[in-house]
Amino acid sequence: MSEEITPDQEVYDRLIAEGKSERIARAKAKAAAVRASKIADGATLGPRSPEEAQKALESARAASGGGGVATKTAAPAEGADAGGGGRLTPEERAARVAASLGNGGKQPASMGVPTSSTHTHRLLALVPPAGIQQVQSKQMDKVYTWPHLLLVEFVALLAAGSLLLIASFFLDAPLGSLANPQEVPAINKAPWYFMGLQELLAYLHPMVAGVTLPGVFVVMLMAAPYVDKNPSAKPENRKLANMAFTFFLAFWGMLVVIGSFLRGAGYAWAWPWVQGLGFTL
């Protein structure tokens, strides 16, 4: 599917000699090879100088008769110099932004646009990046989603899909006899994920087991991030939280296991090797 690219060996060796990591050297050597092949194809590459960009812009504007680029028409403070082709210098633009923000000509520190920039269209530049999403000051070790993550996801999907297909090929979903409200079955159980609640029902008043406790647990779960004020995510720093949650899971797991496998007719205690397994998925 993709064209093979032979990395530029010279660049690679030089970077390795400079002590760069294998990964960076490989990426840069590849980029160098692509650049070389593009130049060989006659393409002009790379960031042009601002002067060159300005010249191209002017000739394009002359050809099209103007318009299409942000112009100075709305600047209240600088009505005097309306000429000059309508392109804002970075200083002018910063002044206008400052004026509209009403902070007396001081540019906010987090504007995100270097003053050397010659771009005119940066709407998002008005919003500090931290206002839109999390930004880290440190560069993290990242890899491209394609192919690295998508490949992993694809394999996981195939594995899970085939597992399920094999299971479905050999195990049929249960189907009992027609529903009959007059005939209560001897073994009468909720699906396994509600078995914990049904087991609680054997000990507590239904209002507590069926409504109050589940409600409290859901609220506790939702509140967990707001209650747990410990900023560390390292297991060794959050022994209490991990222990509490493990107890919580073990408690439910135990109830589910008891309800599913150790209860028989009339919801009485039953050993599966004596009365048989009273459990249907």
Binding site: P174, L175, G176, S177, L178, A179, N180, P181, E183, P185
Partner: peptide
């Protein structure tokens, strides 16, 4: 709509 479903 079998016995299993109804009673669960």
């Amino acid at each position: 709509w079998d016995q299993l479903a109804l009673w669960a």
